[in-house]
Design a protein around this nucleic acid. Sequence first.
DNA 1: ATAGTTAATGACCGGCCGGTCAGCAAGGAT
DNA 2: ATCCTTGCTGACCGGCCGGTCATTAACTAT
Lengths: 202, 202
Amino acid sequence: MAEPRYRRRKEDRPDEITAAALSAFAENGYAATRVEEVAKRAGISKGLLYLYFKTKEELFKAVIRSVVIPRVDALELALDQSTLSAEAFLRGPMLQFMQGIPGSPVGIVVRLMIAEAHRHPDLVDYYWQNVVSRGLAALQRILDRGVENGEFRRTAVNELPHLLIAPVIFSVIWKLLFENRSLDTDRLIECHIDMILNDIKA
Amino acid sequence: MAEPRYRRRKEDRPDEITAAALSAFAENGYAATRVEEVAKRAGISKGLLYLYFKTKEELFKAVIRSVVIPRVDALELALDQSTLSAEAFLRGPMLQFMQGIPGSPVGIVVRLMIAEAHRHPDLVDYYWQNVVSRGLAALQRILDRGVENGEFRRTAVNELPHLLIAPVIFSVIWKLLFENRSLDTDRLIECHIDMILNDIKA
DNA sequence: ATAGTTAATGACCGGCCGGTCAGCAAGGAT
DNA sequence: ATCCTTGCTGACCGGCCGGTCATTAACTAT
């Protein structure tokens, strides 16, 4: 009599499914991943998956959201609560944050976004509003804070905070394509931050 | 009796087909592009396409090759024939080369590579050998030449020429995702080169 | 116990698409 | 003209996969 064939666990399913989807997408990409494979990894039937997510595309969006938003939240929180100087923040928590991105689920999400963006324009909008613009704004706040402190000069970087994260995106792509070929992405990112600080310090 | 229903043009077909494939892949990505759509754009039947390319995957590889190799060749040629100082080369031809990449077919190829790499490991190898390692070697040669001239100091960049092109890759991705949102990628790349030169100049 | 609710199953369907092939017609040779 | 070669067509097939639905069985309330 022991175990019933399955348990009803309405609460837990969505998270379990998105986690399963993330791992499947990571291995095979979105288009090549069968919904049934995701269900299998989540330990449920395909039918049940469709009870929680209307379409494969909805599932995709949920995965993106679940991975990326917490990261941005964490960055903003760290920035707001920090009492470090701008330089110390960049060399400390910010550097760590940036070094953590390649090889994390965020890297996978970047790949998925790149591959699928054109077919999900609404997702691009969402990503822009909730990730990119928030992230860039945070960077700009650090830099401006530095300028106000007298730590930094006002330079082109203040208008192009993108320069700060370019090597992170580069590293994500590199790891994706050439995982085996050696490149010390931590060092790459650190050198880059060094260079920028040398350039903008008052 | 005018026009025959079709003409036999064995010589021209392959290039026309890869060009058609590039434009189709650019719009829809590899997985979502139907072979019949490529054939249509090339003005031929699907059957004929399969006469020139054994599988869809073969076609994909041919597209990648046709786009990317000429670029690397051009870069190497420019570098070998140039008599400019290292700094002048970086600020002149090299900058132009880098600024030209986002928005060109190379950008599309980068997207395709990112999206499909894991399913075509042999293509990644090919890409590595014929594009990436050649490109990095070229960069290193410029930098080393600068050091020998006494123009540059020897710095971390000599071992991490990746730093030079990171913002290019970033710009490619940006254009892909956020084409409409404004970012002056030319300026981004120029500022970055500026910064690097400031850092490494003797 | 019993009945009612609903989480969960898994067999099924329809259409899409990579790849094939029998035949056709354009060009060349004689 | 006539035949031969071969570039080219387009109808076709098979299987894969996103999505559905009738049914079942785990829980809840009484």
